[in-house]
Structures are given as structure tokens and as C-alpha cells.
Amino acid sequence: MGNDVLVFGEIRGGELKKVVRELISAAATATGGTGGATDAVLIGAGAASLAGKIKGFGLRKIFTVEDELLANYSTEGYAAVLASLIAENKYRYVFMGATAMGRDLGPRVAARVDGVMFSDCVEVRMEGGSLVVRRPVYSGKLFVELSPEGDRTVFVSVRPNNIAPAAESGGSTEISPRPSGVTRDMIRAMATEIVPLAGGRPDVTEADVIVSGGRAMKEGANFRMLEELADLFGGAVGASRAAVDAGFAAQPIQVGQTGKVVNPKLYIACGISGAIQHLAGMRTSKVIVAINKDPNAPIFEKAHYGIVGDLFEVVPLLTKEIKTMMQ
């Protein structure tokens, strides 16, 4: 087995996921100095036209697979495409985003080709010719570093926003349309449609800025105040488990060990005390701001900046201040 890499170019909502360029960057790390090459595969509607977006990023080939049967995501349809590419090209590594799709697809294909998978990696590097990945465990309470063993394909899902995205580097990339080889009977579970989150706000796992509220928000309607602050950044609104359990916020925006694990550039925690299970979900945020009445709230131990005060006073002022600053 050589050192070639396959990057899974995930398409969602007609767009290539932002993480794909981060995967290309991770692939460059894995092939660096080994003579390995990186290919990418784009599956589904729009694959051929989206391939142009990563052409010239140091890729050898981009496989595009368009088929009516693959217009909607299915584990089995997409797995069949990946498994056949791996069988033909004997990839040493397969990189995918640690997204809903990547986390569903990766282990299924890894099982099919008898590989190994490292989920949710935040760092990828080479040491003495061997791949080393770092990944959080216990919901980010610890990290572990691992290396693969044996002569098998290694699947790595990379958590978005952790690796600097690849830049355009020129070079020729062959775009190679490919028949899917998928038949209807292979697909037993199939996505039929996607229903967007109510409110159409950015998802907490993808936003660069998150403004989160806790139990101290008092009621759901008060989250509007957090939305106004988040809107200045095109950011997402999050909530602690306490806020979700109290019915102030919907479960899909819950940040924490039993909710979403997030990794934004800026996390503003409003009226969140900082229970260990919440901290587990947001502690890797680059800059954490805490606004809380209680100077002893544990959130201040993890925050970089804090204001001890009433969020109902502080948040509107902060929104106004930042708005002025941005003009």
C-alpha cells in the first residue's frame, strides 16, 4: 500500500463543505515527502460543476460521480462509491469531515474495506513516517494521540475549523467523471428531504461566532437579544442544557456533552454558570467571553474575558458597542 490519500468532498445544499479545503490541507501533511498523491471524490448533484472549486489545490484527480440514485444522501449508495474507489486505487488514507455525513459514512466504509477509523480529529501530523492524530475524548475533557497499525486503509474524520484550509497552489488536476456502479437495491435507507432548522439561523457546529444563553435568560423570548448580537457576526445562537431543559431554547442548539460540541473563534456565554458538561462542549473555542452575575461561576475559569454583571444590561450594551465599532 502506497501513501495516496482520498479526500471526500462533501456536498450539502448544493455547496462544497468548507471543511473540504481543510481536508486537502491535512492530506498534504499526510503525503508530504512520501511521494503520495491526493485525489478527491465528489458525489451527488452538482459534483461536476463543484469540482472546479478545488481544482488546482494540489490534487492529482477529482472523481465526480453524479447519478439520480445519489442525488440524496444514502449511507449505502455513497459507501459503495467510496469502497470501489478504495479497492481500485489502494488509498492509504481517506479524509472526511467530522460532519453528520462523514461520521455516518466513514465507519461503514471502514468496516467494508476492513480499515481503521479515527473520528473527530483536531490535529493531523506525520512523525517518523507514521500518521499521528489528536482527538478529544470524554467530550473534550482529555485528548488522546494515536497512530494506525497494520497495512490497511486509515479513515480520518476531521473536525471543522481546526486545520488551516489549503490554498490554491496551481498545478494540474484531472477531473474524472465516473459511473456510480450503484443500483437501487443497494440502497435500503435513503434521505428523502432536508427540513432546515426553524428560524434559518447558522448551525452552532459551523459558525465562527456563537452567542449562548443559560438558565439566567429567564425565558425563551429573551433569546432574541442574543440573536441580535449574533447577527452582527452572522453567528449562531447556542444554549446550555439548563436553558434547553427549561424550555427556553430548542434542543438542536444545545452546546455541551449531550448536545453539540463547538469550536468557534468567539464564544460569548451569557448567564451560563459553566457546568462541567457545558464546558466540555465549548472549551476549545478560541476566545471565550463570559457574562455572569456570579463572580464565582465556573465559566470564568475557562473564559478569556469576563464581565461580572447582569446579562440583561450587558448584552444590549455590547451589541450596541460592537455595532458602532463595525460601522
Binding site: 435513503m190 434521505a191 428523502t192 428531504e193 427540513v195 432548522l197
Partner: peptide, 13 residues
């Protein structure tokens, strides 16, 4: 099933 920014409707055998 929950995905980024929404819910994916699935039919399975």
C-alpha cells in the same frame, strides 16, 4: 436524523 442546520428525513427498510 439531525444534520448541520436541519433534519434529514429518512426512509429505511
Amino acid at each position: 436524523r439531525r444534520i448541520e442546520g436541519g433534519d434529514e428525513k429518512i426512509e429505511t427498510s
